[in-house]
Design a protein around this nucleic acid. Structure first.
Lengths: 131, 131
DNA sequence: CTGGACGGTGACGTTAGCGGAAGCTAGCTT
DNA sequence: AAGCTAGCTTCCGCTAACGTCACCGTCCAG
């Protein structure tokens, strides 16, 4: 259950390079244990890394992602911290809702283009590849 | 109806700098008319620019966006071109569907965090700011 | 005991995406 | 004529996010 990973394990696993992982650490996004000088990654580290990559896919900068990660690890015993957390989380939610909207709009447009193109081809008797 | 824009008009309007607009032109994403050396933008140019900015918000590179723009301007009289178009459009659709998914997942997680935090605060008798 | 395979630390290189200043021109406007 | 304002080009600068050495230690397998 407490599986550990080496840096190359993780890299291969998530399809990135060790260099990238070290870079994230340099930027303060990760802080794996060390055995001597060698980095050793836990489940939580792995999960964090996955969140990082997700953030990147959504187009966020590493700096943004760093703040984002903090949302997942907060001392919930401190009322004030939770307060702050809530507003930060709501900010992110706002951003993502906007992005969701943008994506959906774009999808609609592209599907329109697809439909129009396909019907254009059918009309010309061209056999249309399936969806 | 055939309104024209200067580069600063457009920049102010879309909240970017003229420099950025010129940069997009350098990268082949725009090709406005010229009056002498001065750039003059049409509605279509403006629309393109908006698409560019949308692509950026979604985290695409300028190179990606360039290809993406071509999807909106194709010679529909050439069957082969339309064929190619359809497959490209479908590719993009696939990408965006994935992104849609990612965004939704992330949103769910954040909403969970929000709910949990809020109920935690309420339980402690703290007055919780509204959504 | 030696050659890989793996891990580590600098430190410099690279690409993308603009920012910003220099130096020039054209068209008002006073 | 002189001074503004806008726009143009050119080029150097800068940040982000890694890639790519170079060089060093370590732990097996042969």
């Amino acid at each position: 259950m407490d599986t550990l990973y080496s840096i190359t394990d993780l890299a291969r696993d998530l399809d990135i390079t060790p260099r990238t992982i070290r870079h994230y650490e340099d930027q303060g996004l990760l802080a794996p244990q060390r055995v001597g000088t060698t980095r050793v990654y836990s489940h939580r580290d792995r999960a964090r890394l996955i969140l990082i990559l997700r953030g990147k896919r959504l187009g966020f900068s590493l700096k943004d992602i760093k703040e984002y990660l903090d949302l997942y690890v907060v001392d919930t015993s401190q009322v004030e911290q939770v307060r702050v957390l809530v507003t930060k989380v709501r900010d992110r939610i706002g951003q993502l809702e906007e992005q969701l909207d943008t994506v959906q709009t774009t999808l609609k447009e592209l599907r329109d283009i697809e439909r129009m193109s396909v019907s254009m081809l059918e009309q010309k008797g061209v056999d249309v590849p399936m969806a």
